[in-house]
């Protein structure tokens, strides 16, 4: 389903219009194909976390593209985390065929993967599973016997176990926009 060789890049970006466009323009120019990309806010206001995985590319080229991404003005920090000690998680919503007799089997398979059943219809169910990409791949295989009729994967998002360098020393955020977590501006 997904290619064996995939690289994961973690980047932090000043959340400005057009940053994603710049990033993807660069990736397009280098003729890479984006496998997954997730972008979301972090605890620092106006700084977003981006996790990008590429379908192919070998050592040297990956190093090069990481450095090119790192040159994008609004992206203060970029790193290839393919082999780094990071937590890597992906969420998947699965729409599985489930006759009344199968419901219990689907439910127990979901539990094996630590997932949840979130919707039940007369002939199908929707389950939610979170895990490492390999686990999600594995889960998908297990559900194939019931018949998968829909998949929504978010793509991986990664986080360092310990302190993370978000490149904040390369970014001077407008004063009135840095708000500590949970406080209103």
């Amino acid at each position: 389903m997904r290619p064996k060789k995939s690289h994961t890049i973690l980047a932090f970006a000043h959340n400005q219009p057009g940053v994603l466009y710049k990033l993807l323009s660069l990736i397009r120019k280098k003729r890479y194909n984006v496998e997954t990309i997730t972008v979301g806010h972090t605890h620092v206001d106006a700084v977003s976390r981006m996790t990008i995985s590429f379908s192919h590319g070998e050592g040297n080229k990956i190093e090069q593209i990481v450095q090119q991404i790192d040159k994008i003005t609004e992206i203060p920090k970029t790193e290839d985390v393919t082999y780094a000690d990071v937590i890597n998680r992906e969420l998947v919503l699965l729409k599985v065929k489930a006759s009344p007799q199968d419901r219990v089997h689907v439910t127990s398979t979901t539990q094996i993967f630590g997932g949840k059943v979130i919707y039940v219809a007369p002939a199908h169910m929707i389950v939610e599973i979170t895990g490492k990409q390999e686990n999600v791949d594995n889960a998908l295989r297990m559900f194939e016997e019931f018949g998968i009729i829909g998949v929504a994967r978010t793509g991986a998002t990664v986080m360092y176990r310990e302190e993370e360098d978000m490149g904040l020393d390369r970014l001077v955020l407008p004063v009135n926009r840095v708000a500590p977590l949970g406080k209103k501006r």
């Binding site: 000043h14 003005t73 390369r170 970014l171 001077v172 955020l173 004063v175």
Partner: peptide
């Protein structure tokens, strides 16, 4: 006017 450089070059 705020004239802070947002993106200091390392």
């Amino acid at each position: 006017f705020d004239t802070t450089i947002r993106y200091p070059v390392p």
